[in-house]
Nucleic acid binder design. Structure first.
Lengths: 264, 264
DNA sequence: TGGCCTGTGAAAAAGCTGTAAACGGTCCGA
DNA sequence: TCGGACCGTTTACAGCTTTTTCACAGGCCA
């Protein structure tokens, strides 16, 4: 997602009205804002990947999928601003768009300066809202998960996660204790619906586990729930440690007991 | 209601155009979406029972009762999506349908892919709206049933239920005190109709009982009603004990106290 | 007592996950 | 421009878990 640089605003523009785009681009160059012109609807996750702060979009370009796109983008990239800038529209349409997650709605014809002002306002609002809160390092077991670095560390050693790997880990860790289903993980990390039979999530889980193990060998972080999904919950790997007595003498792996107690 | 699985989408199709249905079904198989073909208007509550996420319906099948059906379904099963997919229609009709509670309206001829895309959008919207509300932990006897973990615990100890086992338990516990027939259990957990002579439900009940017993030995949770089905109702096992006597038989105080202690 | 029901255990079938390896695309430096 | 490193995706398969199915023993009720 969008990480904090308080640097210039990165904007993507999706519009087929070349005149309008040109004016906008011009103005952005003047302001020193990096920008990106799009011809067609990008895959939702691509925008996040490009670390765009905001998207200016004419829904007309999207055709019938416009609403769906707006909704998906808003949920997949909650940190990104979205300013719809479109021709004639009814009140109902505007309401719908804003409900689905657009941040602002401008009706053409409009002054480019105004569009940029709104974009700026939106981005500022977003950044303030997310604030520092989002990328505070997270501490879990022997791990330090730093959103500002897209990386996890154990005692200062980097786990060398790739971006996707990191995102998977971050998602899981953020929902600590909760079991996440594969579809949910896929949806939130990849940004679109998982195809039937896709094993990507499993593969990434394995890679993450592997890398975490080389860095923090005596903890287990990711647990499998058969038939359901995965759960993040740091747990000392081998047996010993907790001299916690078992109430009824049943052989319960010490580790599990630990986890259960720790969870609450 | 519909349990917020982020799993595949469950769809029912009600249409007499067998060609159209076949194409749709084909595509759904490809996506791995469980589906259900209907011949005639189902009783409104049946759909909810089967945990259908959305219904695709051609109003022509319903005849004169169509509007009534739409309205009743929308109000009886607010968690379910409804996509109307019907032949030539006037603007007024579409408006009426959407007002009465349909979520989307597609005019035939139409591309199956589009129909499914819309269904998906509708379902996603619904699910987000319902939000986390659904998985609050449930307390019963000595048990804590946690939907977010797909698991039941007694004083912090996991019962190690498999997914299906958990679903059966959850269903029963959710209908606390009510006797559920095997067919109903089967439909709601498995999602389709039980074959004659299938003993799966019995087998699962046994497994659940067994696992609950190892973890919470002095309670009985699931009761058999000969010739009818099963009922969930926590009850201290041996004779004496319930000085915690509940006026109406509802368990709670001791158990909840326990659980709270365990949690901290 | 006889005819259904239900509980139980175990074997067979189906399904899921871990793992490794191959593939194809992108980016970069030589 | 070529080659190589790096990543994400896909596929295949072995091993293990879960689900289903079956047969039989008991229980419930008329």
């Amino acid at each position: 997602m969008n990480h904090t640089d308080h640097g210039p605003i990165r904007i993507a523009v999706l519009d087929s009205d070349t005149g309008f785009v040109r004016v906008l681009v011009n103005r952005m160059d003047g302001l020193g804002w990096p920008h990106l012109g799009l011809e067609a609807a990008p895959r939702v996750d691509e925008l996040a990947t490009m670390r765009v702060d905001a998207l200016v979009v004419d829904l007309a370009v999207l055709g019938p999928d416009a609403w769906d796109f707006v909704e998906r983008l808003a949920s997949a990239a909650p940190g990104m601003g979205m300013v719809v800038c479109t021709g004639r529209s009814t009140v109902a349409q505007r309401v719908r768009g804003l409900r689905l997650g657009a941040d602002d709605w401008v009706t053409k014809p409009c002054h480019p300066e105004e569009v940029l002002a709104r974009v700026e306002a939106v981005v500022r609002r977003r950044k303030r809202a997310q604030g520092a809160e989002a990328d505070l390092p997270m501490q879990a077991g022997d791990l330090e998960i730093r959103a500002d670095q897209f990386q996890a560390f154990s005692r200062g050693r980097s786990a060398d996660l790739t971006r996707r790997e990191f995102e998977v880990l971050q998602l899981l860790a953020g929902a600590e204790g909760k079991v996440l289903q594969r579809e949910e993980i896929y949806q939130r990390v990849w940004g679109y619906t998982m195809a039937h039979g896709d094993r990507s999530v499993d593969v990434f889980i394995r890679k993450v586990r592997q890398k975490l193990e080389t860095v923090s060998a005596d903890w287990r972080y990711i647990h499998t729930h058969f038939g359901v999904g995965y759960r993040f919950d740091p747990e000392v790997r081998d047996g010993r440690a907790p001299d916690v007595a078992e109430p009824n003498g049943d052989p319960v792996p010490a580790a599990r007991l630990n986890a259960d107690l720790a969870r609450h």
